[in-house]
Amino acid sequence: MTPTNHDTTGTRAQRRGMWLGFVGVAIFALTQPFTRLAVGTTDAPLMSGLFVAMGRAVAAAALSAAWLLWARAPWPHRQHWPALAMTAFGVVLGFPLLTSIAMRQVQAVHASVIVGVLPLATATVGALLHRQRPSLGFWACAVAGSALVVAFALLHSGQAGLHLHPADQLLLGAMACAAVGYGYGARLSQHIPAEQVICWALLLALPVTLPLALWSWPAQPLPSSAWGGFAYVAVFSMWLGFFAWYRGLALGGTVRVSQVQLAQPFLSMLFAVPLLGESLDFTTVAFGLAVVATVFIGKRMPVNTPHPISTPEHTKRSPT
C-alpha cells in the first residue's frame, strides 16, 4: 500500500519532534550540575534553593515578557488558562523548587539516576491527558523503571531499613511535578505556539515567584561560578529549553517523544564530572543503564492512539 500524504506528513512531524525533543533534553541535562554550582553543598552553601527556583523563574519571566511583546503574541483564550496554571505549577514552581533544595544534599550524578524515572512519568501523564492507551508491556516497563529508581535511592540513602533520603523524596516529587507540567504544556502546544506556552506560564506565576525571589535574595557576596550556574538555569533550563521541548512533544506526541529523556541521566552524569569534579561509581552507572533499558524497552511497546498525530493547529497555514 502506498503511503498517503497524511502518513508522510505525520512521520515527518514525528521525526522532527524527536529531534527537537533531544535538543530540549540536552539543555535540561545540564540543569542538575549548574543548580549544584548555584546552591553549593551542605559544607559550603551558596544560594538558597528557594532563591534559585524563584529567581530563575523571575529572570525567565522578564525574557518572556520581552519576547511576547516582540512577537506581538495575543492573549491566550480563556479555556487555556487552567492548563497554563497546571504547567506553571509543574515546571515553574514545583520542579525547580524541589530540585534546587535537593541538589545541595546530593551530588548531581546521584540526582541524574533519579531523573531516569521522568520519561516514564511524562509518558504516563501524556497517555492520560491525550487518552492514549499504552499496552500492558509499556506499563510493566514503567513499574520496573520506577522500582529501579526507588531501589537506587534506598541503596544510597545511608539509612538502615526502607527509608528514602529526604533529598530523594524531594527529587521524586520534582519528577511528578515535571511530568504534570510537561503533559499540560504539550497539550497546550497543540493550540498555541510552544514558545508562548512557557512564556505565559512564567508570567502567570510571577505574582508568586517575584516576592519570594526578593525575600530570599542572597545576603552575602557569592562567587561568579554560583551566578554562572544561576544564569544557565534561568535562561536555558527555565526558558529556551522549553521552546524546543514543548514543540517536540506537540509534533511527535508526548508518549513517544518523552522517551528521548532516556539520554538525560547519562548526559547529566557526563556533564557533572568536568563541571563539578564528581566521579562515577559502578553502582550508579549500572542503575542508570538499567533504568534506560526499561525506558528503551517501553518505547518499543505499542501505544494505541485514538487519532493520528497531526500538525499542531497554530502551525497550519491557509493557502494564499
Score class of each variant (00 low, 15 high):
Ile297Glu: 01
Pro221Met: 03
Ile297Thr: 12
Gly137Phe: 07
Tyr182Phe: 15
Leu128Asp: 05
Gln132Phe: 04
Ala176Gln: 04
Pro96Thr: 06
Asn304Leu: 08
Thr42Leu: 14
Ser112Met: 04
Leu210Asn: 03
Thr42Cys: 01
Pro211Lys: 08
Val149His: 12
Asp281Tyr: 09
Ala44Trp: 02
Val233Lys: 01
Ser48Asn: 07
Leu249His: 13
Tyr184Leu: 10
Gly145Ala: 08
Pro221Gly: 04
Trp200Asp: 02
Val58Asp: 04
Leu276Arg: 03
Gly116Leu: 12
Ala38Lys: 02
Val91Met: 14
Pro218Asp: 00
Trp215Gly: 02
Ala186Gly: 15
Arg317Gly: 00
Ser135Phe: 13
His110Glu: 15
Phe34Asn: 10
Phe51Thr: 08
Gly126Arg: 11
Ala290Thr: 04
Ala65Ile: 03
Phe138Cys: 06
Val292Pro: 05
Tyr246Val: 08
Thr2Tyr: 03
Thr31Ala: 06
Lys316Val: 05
Ala176Leu: 15
Met301His: 05
Thr294Asn: 10
Pro221Leu: 05
His156Ala: 14
Pro207Lys: 06
Pro223Asn: 08
Glu278Asn: 04
Gly228Met: 03
Gln264Asp: 00
Gly288Trp: 07
Leu93Ser: 13
Phe152Glu: 06
Ala73Leu: 04
Pro306Tyr: 05
Gly116Glu: 12
Gln264Lys: 01
Ala174Trp: 07
Leu148Phe: 11
Tyr246Ile: 08
Met269Gly: 11
His163Asp: 04
Val150Arg: 07
Leu128Lys: 04
Trp67Cys: 06
Pro218Phe: 01
Trp75Gly: 03
Ser237Phe: 06
Gln32Pro: 10
Thr283Met: 12
Val150Met: 09
Tyr246Gly: 10
Ile309Phe: 06
Leu249Phe: 15
Gly241Asn: 10
Val291His: 06
Val125His: 10
Ala244Pro: 07
His314Ala: 09
Ala127Pro: 14
Leu171His: 11
Gly90Ile: 07
Thr11Asp: 12
Trp139Met: 14
Leu30Ser: 10
Met47His: 01
Leu204Asp: 08
Val106Ile: 13
Leu214Gln: 11
Arg131Val: 10
Ala167Val: 11
Ser189Glu: 09
Ala286Asn: 09
Leu203Gln: 10
Trp75His: 08
Val23Phe: 13
Ala140Leu: 14
Phe242Gln: 03
Asp281Met: 10
Ala167His: 11
Arg56Gly: 00
Phe266Asp: 01
Met301Gln: 15
Thr305Gln: 15
Tyr182Ile: 12
Pro207Val: 06
Thr9Gln: 14
His130Ser: 14
Leu46Gly: 06
Ala29His: 02
Val208Ala: 15
Thr87Gly: 08
Leu97Ser: 15
Ala231Ser: 13
Ser279Cys: 00
Phe242Thr: 03
Trp227Gly: 00
Thr99Asp: 03
